[in-house]
């Protein structure tokens, strides 16, 4: 049995850039704990000599020539943005 603590849940939420309420921490601690306990099932298997599969096909990195080409105009890139100013994405202050 491996459990996840409330502190861990809060830490993971911060890493995932999620704000969670105390109520959500309670619920998430229980639910994540259940899922992680279920995943312990995998430890029944001896995988010491098994290679991990990251990709099912024998794919190689695809390279192309590094040539500039036109794709998206700046105005287009900005048109779905929640906020913009002077042709740039606008965000709240980064420095305190």
């Amino acid at each position: 049995m491996s459990d996840i603590s409330k502190e861990q849940v809060k830490h993971v939420a911060h890493l995932a850039r999620l704000a969670i309420t105390d109520e959500e921490v309670e619920k998430m601690t229980k639910q994540l704990g259940d899922i992680i306990n279920y995943a312990e099932l995998l430890n029944e298997l001896d995988t010491d000599n098994v290679e991990p599969t990251t990709h099912v096909l024998d794919l190689k990195n695809v390279m192309r020539k590094d040539e500039p080409k036109k794709w998206i105009e700046k105005e287009d890139a900005l048109k779905n943005a929640p906020d913009q100013q002077d042709g740039q994405f606008r965000v709240p202050s980064i420095l305190e």
Binding site: Q8, M28, Q31, L32, L42
Partner: peptide
């Protein structure tokens, strides 16, 4: 949110081998 949390946990320092890499090996089987 639940899946982002689960994934972030499985990839986080100290748990990566036990969960993520283990699952990749089971995938091979």
């Amino acid at each position: 949110k639940r899946r982002i949390m689960l994934g972030t946990f499985a990839l986080s320092s100290g748990y990566y081998d036990a969960y993520y890499k283990k699952a990749q090996k089971v995938r091979t089987l």
